[in-house]
């Protein structure tokens, strides 16, 4: 969570509200912020830290681990209409890639702004070529887009 907190300004710039959730109490959230996270990021955690102590919200989202009694690393991108656009779930030992989350949000935002008039091919980043779906594109993606564009970082 420290990385997400550190990059909160990047989320804010895209108009994204971050919410973190675990089964810890709000008291533990405070102490974690005070004793560790604030020292890692040089400020207090800039978003609400939610407490789902009985795991009920985690169950709603399908990421509650009944055996361990904790929530797995589930990250959900929710659009302004409250629709889930994407999610990623990882087991606890592997951390998320915040850059990838931001990239996906930028892609979903572009699709939303163009009302689906533009879509983002694999590996798309802001500034890279999008595709405009339509009858003309059927069977012709190879003329418009090449796989090496997805290979580049």
């Amino acid at each position: 969570m420290s990385t997400v907190a550190d990059r909160n300004d990047d989320f804010k710039a895209l108009g994204v509200q971050v919410l973190s959730v675990s089964v810890d109490s709000v008291f533990v959230h405070k102490v974690w912020n005070d004793t560790e996270l604030s020292k890692m990021i040089g400020k207090d955690v800039p978003f609400p830290m939610l407490s789902d102590q009985d795991g009920s919200v985690g169950r709603l989202y399908g990421i509650y681990d009944e055996d361990a009694g904790v929530e797995t690393r589930g990250r959900f991108i929710i659009d302004p209409d409250g629709i889930v656009q994407g999610f990623e779930v990882l087991t606890p030992p592997v951390g998320r890639n915040v850059n990838e989350t931001l990239r996906q949000i930028q892609a979903f935002q572009l699709v939303r702004e163009t009302k689906g008039g533009e879509v983002t091919p694999a590996g798309w980043k802001p500034g890279r070529k999008t595709l405009k779906p339509g009858p003309h594109l059927v069977g012709n993606v190879w003329k418009e887009w090449t796989v090496d564009l997805a290979r580049e970082d």
């Binding site: 989320f11 895209l14 971050v18 675990s22 929530e71």
Partner: peptide, 14 residues
Amino acid sequence: KGQWVSLCFYPGDF
């Protein structure tokens, strides 16, 4: 509502 939200679950504080 009306904003993008990134909802992040994680296994626990500390």
